[in-house]
Design a protein around this nucleic acid. Structure first.
Lengths: 205, 205, 205, 205
DNA sequence: AATGAATGAGCATTCATTCAT
DNA sequence: TATGAATGAATGCTCATTCAT
């Protein structure tokens, strides 16, 4: 009742460390073998903890997958919005989104694999995926397109939602191809290629 | 002692029929429950055959998935090439590809689900996917873009491979969104939206 | 569709044989190690079948326990009623019930262990137990006591339900003691001892 | 460097308190969920201590069950002997035993559940059970019956051990029925019913 | 003494695949 | 060819117990 309180900062760090270790290990293992082919024991051993320990930090194997997605999306969108706030021109905004998208996933191939491949492996997850973070992401793009239309720099005869999907689809395909490619090349520069075509397509004449 | 030999034509038809039944049943089942959650027994019973019979036509559960992909891609590409041969202008060719792509998948939602979701669930499959049919598909698009560039109707400062990926990525995203959407809408008309932007982006000024 | 129908009698026998093997093995194993300490694999190997085969005949480990109880009780009560129908005097009926009770369990020590020990290990099961077969059993005894009271051979100042419980409790204790005893002795003769006291206690003066 | 030594009396009290808390919590939890379905963590939290603390007072989960039995039996037999010493007539002694038996368990339903149900769940425990406290209990009854026979108030043609088992079995059945009954009724009065029959059965004519 | 995070052995159940008929 | 009973390897998760603090 009256014990000297634990150093909560240290304690929290320890907890976070172990959760992070498991989180990171899961990304590794899922990327390497696929979600369904990964055993919880694999993750545990990759994280350097006992099997049971995984369950002190995550309720189930599936929850780990969700956590990977949630954390990444959170950071993704947070950083994105922060950066976009400082940019004026809609075209520049879109370019920055494209750059960030490819930069981020290009910097963490394993996370990219999980995002492009493992998260797609079930309609159930895909639905949740689109309901949450993904919808928010698409919305940011859509809003930016609308901005450009109001401002007069983008054509008014295209539907912003569709444009947003095309934009996202193009970026998504870049990442998927990059992951599956046997050759190794930097992902980020592809942003320019995408912008060249996309902006050309939506720019007002 | 010896049986009357079967009419081989009829026999072949019977064989094809049963294989088709299993094939079709697998698409249904995979679409409904996902590849990993589908049991071979589910497929067998949906096809109206015994569990063991599945193995007379397919070597394994995985082979069924491959077969689904291979058959669809074969038909896809065959029909596509046939149609494109009769079209002159590269821009019209691309438009036709887009239409066919969305038409086909839009007409068979179950197949579309398997294509968009289940076939993505493993890096292994994804790799084979890109090595085989998919590469061929992308190549057709790339070639058409190059044609347009030579002919002068498409900008020369864009890389055909990249343009092809963007084109494919845009279409792919349309399909994925259509599948996951709670609302029901026709998929094919999205081809026009995609073309509006894509052509605008690659057209020579 | 038009195959020669299986010899259903033989087929049924085969099915019954395997189910019986598992049933019997389960009694053995439960008696030896206790329900909670028995692994399904133990039962399977004792029955000479693969682990998975157990699940072709029983839905779960728990269902096996229920089955053991249900089958035994069914036989028990069926045989009991048949015999009692041919006996006139209530006192003789009770004596016969006691004899049958101890005879049966005395002839199958393993089944007795499961009945006396394993079936008691959970309030859940106990409740179901008392709701079904057991209640029927107790009722037969109660009715016989009532008969004796009407007829005038049993005291009227005792409650039939209570007498039935005492009767059952006494027999039950005989079996439990027999099971746990290190010495080996025949169980059936204990019926006479019980009757001597019980009949003395309920006989009209 | 050295701590002020604890007041040993107080310390012992504290120790006893915590052990009691765990003991009591275990009875609660076992009664509610059954021995095998109870987690040590459940007991710990019901007792308001940490999981590990349980192991400072008990060597294992099983030992807790033993302790519950041993303590109860100790008290049971101690009190019983004390009371019986002041009673003359064997018949009155038996009546008092019956009363005490039902009184005690009737006053603590949770303990009764553990006694009637949980303690029966393993042959291993049952054997130890009969070897220890239970044998002593049965012996007291047996001795009393012998007394009555010598004295002439009980029939000489019955075996005291058997009579003791019947007596115990009857009481035991009363308790079990009471526990499982959906209706709530006082247990102690059943002692009279049992005595009416049992004494009638063993009384010398 | 007390804590509670960490451990890792243990197990019921599922299901792709085989094979005797 | 076709069947479907039988197989047995494979795995997510639980929980009694330990031990560093």
């Amino acid at each position: 009742m009256s014990r000297i309180p634990k150093n909560t900062a240290a304690a929290r760090t320890a907890v976070t460390d172990k959760r992070n270790a498991i989180h990171r290990a899961a990304v590794e293992v899922f990327a390497a073998k696929g979600y369904f082919n990964s055993k919880v024991a694999d993750i545990a051993s990759a994280a350097g903890v006992a099997d049971g320990t995984v369950y002190l930090y995550f309720k189930s194997k599936e929850e780990i997958l969700h956590y990977i997605f949630d954390r990444a999306m959170e950071e993704f969108i947070g950083d994105g919005l922060r950066e976009l706030a400082e940019i004026e021109a809609p075209a520049d905004k879109l370019r920055r989104v494209a750059e960030l998208h490819l930069e981020r996933l290009g910097a963490d191939r394993e996370l990219a694999v999980v995002f492009q491949v493992e998260l797609r492996g079930s309609t159930k997850f895909m639905s949740e995926f689109s309901r949450t973070g993904f919808a928010k992401y698409l919305d940011i793009i859509k809003k930016t397109v609308e901005e450009g239309q109001k401002e007069g720099s983008f054509r008014k005869d295209i539907k912003p939602v569709v444009a947003a999907k095309i934009f996202y689809g193009a970026l998504d395909e870049m990442v998927t191809n990059w992951i599956l490619s046997k050759r190794s090349y930097p992902l980020r520069p592809m942003a320019d290629e995408v912008m060249k075509i996309f902006l050309g397509g939506i720019a007002a004449k």
